[in-house]
Design a protein around this nucleic acid. Structure first.
Lengths: 280, 280
DNA sequence: TTGCAACTCCTTACAGCATAAAGTAACCTC
DNA sequence: GAGGTTACTTTATGCTGTAAGGAGTTGCAA
């Protein structure tokens, strides 16, 4: 499903991304009045993707939602992959850009990560858009700017800042991806999480009766961990067990990384070359 | 492209995954001699995916490679998604399962991460297989067992171990994904990395002339970082700049996480409940 | 030896996808 | 009103996974 950006006319897609009441022009043009516009189409695309997932995002689906055929969209948007780019940048606008750093960078970056997490849960399809050649829309830059503002002045060298941010981004993305996949798998396959796992456990036991000899460390971990997990399972039932575990792993991993960043910031600021980038 | 596992007959797919000279049975059966077998088909699938990517993996493509039609495969494999599961577990067998922990867990886990990185670069399509409902094949478990053996005995509680491993997995996966996407984008779109970025920079400057006012921290970072990046760019030219950056960020991020794990292991082993799971 | 059941593999068919090409109708300017 | 431009539709092409049915091969029982 991963869609690559930047195939089409680069100039056209950039002008679509950065347009802002762009060049209203001379006014009346010949031909029938446009019944649609790019914003409406992008909105419909986002609605389809939010409701039915990326796999259900087809030109027909978007067109139908607007009472048109699939081909009608091509008047406004060069191709499906440009539409996805526009959808991506559109939803990115939901992310906050200001974080309070008065209590230090760490609570700020934690809040940022939590917001990103919530964002991905809201728009899971975003995780399916390729990151290789970023959309380079205004909101993509705004998101980056936000993090750079928080982490730019904590004593890391500029190259270090970039890499820490990349690592942070990918970590958040990765954990959010597992969580959304856990959540989506149930409706997609028609089998609830717990039931699926139970069924599989039985089958594993059946086909691999020597499991605990082949994977002793794993078996030991499972037995001790499942006790704790069961106790925990009684608590909430809004989200499935796997989804909650992903959330916990996200929190734990984030703290691990931020501990590392803290240490790096201390050692980096003594000696190593660094420019005072960011934080005006 | 993300394919969900476990839709088909669970029993059938488990027996395919765990089969090992399975129940040769009574011997001669009626009907023509099978011209293919599951292993051959899985091998052909891996070859197609390795060479042309996940998007090019179609039943027709795999069939053609074996001199058959697409439908011939359905005699051996219930569906495409089961085939993908089998391919996944097949290549997972390439990963080493033994790591030398005599110098401590940290070099071992670093080597593990490096091997995983190389593995993903070799089989980028693996990154497109959903993790939500893991394949639960023997090699998937072997991979997990390997990490648990390294991290099980360093003083983390069992629940903590699971989450640290989840975080580690997702981090490696995420960084590997960016790297492979950078590498694949060039052939996929026909435009080399550097050229694409140069072209885009010009367009951003054209459509957002107020860039450095809108994104001051970003602009400052870019200008200082690009100096260092240019010096670095002279060194090697095997991989593109973006790909090398992803690799660097991977290294940096991994060290950050492992610093955190080290600290956690120290504090966790004093006081908190934990079982001595793993490392016989 | 014959007949049958099981088996492999093929052809055909269908619904769905992105999108190219061509046609129709609406609208402005001259 | 004519001509050109634009919005949108219909039709068509070549992909996809896979259901359905048929052809040919083989082993065993009668």
């Amino acid at each position: 499903m991963i869609v690559f950006a930047g195939q089409g006319d680069a100039r056209r897609s950039m002008s679509l991304l950065w347009r802002s009441a762009e060049s209203a022009g001379p006014g009346a043009k010949p031909g029938p009045k446009p019944g649609l516009d790019v914003d409406t189409i992008v909105g419909a695309g986002v609605a389809v993707a939010d409701e039915q997932g990326m796999a259900a995002l087809s030109m027909r689906a978007v067109g139908t939602r607007l009472g048109r055929t699939a081909m009608a969209l091509y008047t406004y948007v060069p191709s499906k992959s440009e539409l996805v780019d526009l959808m991506h940048d559109r939803v990115l606008a939901e992310l906050p850009t200001e974080y309070d750093t008065s209590a230090g960078w760490r609570p700020a970056i934690t809040a940022w990560a939590d917001d990103a997490w919530a964002f991905y849960q809201r728009h899971p399809w975003v995780l399916q858009v390729s990151q290789a050649r970023p959309v380079l829309g205004p909101n993509e830059y705004a998101r980056l700017e936000t993090v750079v503002r928080i982490l730019g002045g904590i004593g890391l060298g500029p190259l270090h800042v970039r890499r820490v941010i990349a690592a942070l981004f990918q970590f958040v993305r990765g954990m959010a991806l597992v969580a959304t996949e856990h959540r989506q798998a149930a409706p997609e396959t028609g089998v609830p999480d717990e039931e699926w796992w139970a069924q599989r456990s039985v089958l594993v036991a059946e086909f691999a009766p020597d499991f605990s000899e082949r994977f002793p460390a794993l078996a030991a971990l499972e037995s001790t961990a499942s006790l704790a997990a069961m106790a925990e399972a009684e608590a909430g039932r809004a989200a499935s067990h796997m989804e909650r575990e992903a959330r916990e792993a996200f929190r734990v991993g984030l703290d691990l990384i931020l501990d590392g960043v803290e240490a790096a910031a201390r050692t980096d600021s003594d000696g190593t070359l660094h420019a005072s980038a960011g934080t005006p």
